[in-house]
Design a protein around this nucleic acid. Sequence first.
DNA 1: GTCCTTTGTGAATCCTCAA
DNA 2: GTTGAGGATTCACAAAGGA
Lengths: 398, 398
Amino acid sequence: MEVSRARIAGVNSRIKVVRTGLTASAALPGSPPDQRAASELALDRIILGDCLAELQRLPSQSVDLVFADPPYNLQLEGALTRPDHSHVDAVDDDWDKFDSFAEYDAFTRAWLAECRRVLKPDGALWVIGSYHNVFRVGAILQDLGYWILNDIVWRKANPMPNFRGRRFTNAHETLIWATPTRSKRYTFHYEALKGGNDDLQMRSDWFIPLCTGDERLKDAGGRKVHPTQKPEALLARVLLSSSNPGDVVLDPFLGSGTSAAVAKKLGRRFIGIERDPVYARAAQQRVDAAAPVDPQAFAAAPAKRSEPRVAFLSLIEAGLIAPGEMLEDERRRHKALVRADGTLQLGPAVGSIHKIGALSQGLPSCNGWTYWMIERNGQRLHIDALRGEYRQTHRAAA
Amino acid sequence: MEVSRARIAGVNSRIKVVRTGLTASAALPGSPPDQRAASELALDRIILGDCLAELQRLPSQSVDLVFADPPYNLQLEGALTRPDHSHVDAVDDDWDKFDSFAEYDAFTRAWLAECRRVLKPDGALWVIGSYHNVFRVGAILQDLGYWILNDIVWRKANPMPNFRGRRFTNAHETLIWATPTRSKRYTFHYEALKGGNDDLQMRSDWFIPLCTGDERLKDAGGRKVHPTQKPEALLARVLLSSSNPGDVVLDPFLGSGTSAAVAKKLGRRFIGIERDPVYARAAQQRVDAAAPVDPQAFAAAPAKRSEPRVAFLSLIEAGLIAPGEMLEDERRRHKALVRADGTLQLGPAVGSIHKIGALSQGLPSCNGWTYWMIERNGQRLHIDALRGEYRQTHRAAA
DNA sequence: GTCCTTTGTGAATCCTCAA
DNA sequence: GTTGAGGATTCACAAAGGA
């Protein structure tokens, strides 16, 4: 999973191609979606166009991760307001809400369904929202067959206070992490996250400051370019936890381009869709200015699960353990004989290091590598240490 | 917010009336709901019966606050064991099983609609849920015309870990606070909450321990009476923030009776509906044993103030350390690369600041915070100093 | 009685690959 | 698709037990 310098250079040069201007959807008029193979997918580009129309052009099962920050406030979205919104009195309020919700739901269902089509089977989707919209998004997502893995709470370090003092300070937003189907194949860098968190599992509540200061995009007049620019730290945690270097990250509501900028910095590929030319241009400039961090700093960490398997027999064949030696558990309660074929013998029972380990304890299963110990140079070692030794000496060959 | 002694005494004497036993619904056969005025509403009682049927008997606009802890529809499959092979006691009760989302939605819509009818116009509703159900509950609640005031995150101090390391620790549950209509007339004790929170506005993320120890109801055999008993601190914050002494609190899924017990302790009236006779009896005993308390004691209780934990990753996210930088130990014998995910790399090894620190010295453990140094402005600092800096700028991190 | 160690447990949608 | 074996995996508390 090492990312070479050549690869990074390749990413950079590709970005340079689109740096000349936005890739407007109008530039691709004659390409029907069904004829576009995944290999043709143009990457590291910002598409200026309608979210739904552009999603429909993307090939199926071509994207590793979707990050979506859809509109929260129905009233402010031109496409979602009723034409005759002008006079709504209190009596009509419920109907108005129902109409708005129905429209919002239809819109949500449409883009979530397209994202599900575009996602690879082992990909995943993240959506962020507030209480205004996240319940609808979450329910629709479940209805469409997505499988929720976690809901994550982004706890804001410095939220806007509630000026009227009529509610609790709205100090968090919610993210939903889901796979397109109920699948066990998804990316999650458990050990890396744990390593960065004082060796404790990363929890579902994340404490991250708002996007402020230099990170916040401003226009020439010093006004913020986008009203809800997300902090890069939030996106970084999303991408680092659930994607790999080189993965394709799609953002159907790119906005100020946080997801694309972080994707570039962390060695991921991106596709961003944005309808507003002002946002799209700002995002493009931001992406152009973003510099990838040292590839060593985001290269996939070796996870135990992904280490190559080693048969216990291989240790015997490599001379690290001799047939006839005895293994013991930590407390020296059980003692087993190493046989030449890589099995253990404990009394009359013969089986794998795991089976005999489980049997000796009366448990349904056991990791023999971390259960059995052997004596070497007057010290006791888990046989897992010898496995590590074996892997080290055989890594060069591979 | 002060609860007067006279008022508490009055509540007590009323409760004595129903202390003789459970008020079974069968005891009220001849009273059609429409003929029952609000003034006749029998209070401080636990109704043994079906949630929907009993809600339908209650008069309209008679309740100040609803607290509902409905089934979550967890959809668990198979068994789960801890790394030590012990069995995880899952919530596999029949009451949590639904055939489909559609069935769960119909049930949810029915009880939420009845609660809306029963609520006074200036009343409010609280629902608690997890990602399994809360999105559906929230969307249906909006569809019915409820108006959401806040979503609240209950951050668990001591959640169950994710034993297989396949997801983020599910460390929170979500509460929704809503009024039956879009109304400005609802109860919110802003100042009282602020006073109990170091004069800071109470945020939407609440840090409260699970219900354990003596508070957890046990049967004669020492087994927990109810699988999902909620902590009284959670209910206390709900009731103190959004109800007044003397208010009527309705809980359609009473379970172990936390809401009723806290209501009695805080001088509120209650109506609890519970279908399971075992739960209902336990709740009744619990309520009988509950004595009015000083609200301040509750408000002060929950958050044990220790130094908030800071992840090394947070320093990177905050820009205090950049991915790709190098850390060195005091004597410059070892040099490690800071990775974007908050882990360190030393040669082929990747791990936490502590793990890599220990590895570099050949020791079993190491405090990475005081072992690793970094250069800043020509001077060398322990990374612990940067942690201090982070804590200073982010007080709310706990 | 005090201190230290061991054990138990909580609303959980909790593995992965080869044959 | 299914089956079977390999082997990876836990945090904060509280209560009980032992020295």
